[in-house]
Design a protein around this nucleic acid. Structure first.
Lengths: 236, 236
DNA sequence: CGACGGCTTGAGGCGCTTCAAGTGCGGTGG
DNA sequence: CCACCGCACTTGAAGCGCCTCAAGCCGTCG
């Protein structure tokens, strides 16, 4: 489990007009704003680092994780574009952040956060959505079986399905299928779902055997029948 | 698992000068603020209810929980005085709230939240602290053994110990012990820690047998040697 | 081609759950 | 005052699901 060095200081260019919410909030102060790109598997910060900067993810996927001293890892959040992270209640980051894909992030000095009410609102909205996701994830980690965890994980990657606003199988006669990209290794999925890599692999194999999914590529899964997978999440 | 009816409409009195942060924030609008008391085991709202009001806990302890359709329950948060809850990213509450002790809560209309910047800051601070707690809890649920979970739970009830700012055993020669009140049944603890009631009971019995704790009353545990219990949390 | 890394598969073991009694304690009533 | 009841908790025995350890497989790259 060797993690890549933080690939920082890469291209501290000027803000692009279409990029961050940070920009939309009207904060364009030279020293506080630095949109930057980082390759896959860059560590943006480590748990315990001084929490001086706040991040907004403009493009790509980032995971937040925590380590126990004996090496056990728990991935606590998977963040998509639009998420704000790196905000801490204390002086230091409470978890580490690593990019799962190439990413584009904007950062902001922690102190300048409080200057903009519209930015405050945006941050609050992000935090609330993260809170709900973490509540759901607590249910997954505390109460679901391995099969339910993997099914829930896969359903999370299908937009507009599985939640309250589930649109159901599309009207079109025919299959209710969809291909999703994981952006994560089996080990990362295991550490997110509170399982071992072997269990994740076994469950995925079983779903394949049952005809619920097809493995197009290692990190590209075709869900053959979305409704059937959704039924296995424990939420129906 | 029968849950008590929501004992609402009890005493919608006027605000007391020493009570909520909501008040300190300068929001004293008659229709938006209603400090109220509720007995132990009152359900303040249910998952799925329209999220019209935001709560602040002035006194007592509240738990937030979610249920799966087959009855499995996960307690997702335990909240102490000062916490804000009932804020939702969507239209409805994402979990249910029940008092573990008699409580005093202030409520605020959801819409009036955005009017006060100082209140915004207070809410953000609360959300951040809840986020960190949920991160820690994800590690507990995903990666810790039963013994580690119970030890972590007990240490959470000891102020100033176990965290970064742990003061260590007090200088005073003698025992490093402390009595804590759980405010929860074994079933509630189990549903919080992602275990069964039997496992929680067995682990507590084993800790008692090892001389780590004494059971004063059912919900009152004396931690005989705090450092030794802390050592079992998996975080050292 | 061979080496490497990520993934899969198998066999066995352990930790927690399940199911089923048993215990202890506070409250009620004879 | 004590017998009885109910409820929460404890304890035991058996089973199962996931973990551990160990090979084996497969695609990629030098």
């Amino acid at each position: 489990m060797a993690y890549v060095d933080r690939g920082f200081n890469s291209g501290g260019g000027r803000i692009s007009p279409t990029s961050a919410e940070f920009a939309r909030a009207g904060i364009q102060n030279d020293c506080t704003l630095r949109p930057a790109r980082h390759p896959q598997h860059s560590v943006l910060f480590y748990e315990g680092d001084k929490a001086e900067r706040v991040y907004e993810l403009d493009e790509g996927v980032v995971m937040l994780f925590k380590l126990l001293p004996d090496g056990r890892r728990q991935v606590v959040e998977i963040l998509n574009a639009g998420s704000v992270f790196g905000l801490s209640a204390g002086e230091v980051y409470d978890c580490s952040a690593e990019s799962l894909t190439p990413v584009k992030v904007s950062t902001l000095d922690r102190n300048s956060l409080e200057t903009s009410p519209s930015l405050q609102r945006h941050v609050t909205r992000c935090l609330l959505s993260q809170l709900e996701t973490l509540h759901d994830h607590a249910v997954l980690l505390g109460r679901k079986s391995a099969m339910e965890r993997v099914s829930t994980f896969l359903m999370r990657l299908v937009p507009n399905r599985g939640g309250f606003g589930c649109v159901g199988p599309t009207e079109e006669a025919g299959e209710d299928s969809r291909s999703v990209t994981l952006h994560m290794t089996r080990q990362e999925i295991a550490d997110y779902l509170g399982l071992t890599i072997e269990t994740v692999s076994r469950v995925i194999s079983e779903m394949k055997r049952k005809g619920l999914i097809c493995i197009d590529r290692q990190d590209q899964i075709r869900i053959v029948n979305i409704c059937r997978v959704c039924q296995m999440t424990g939420m129906h």
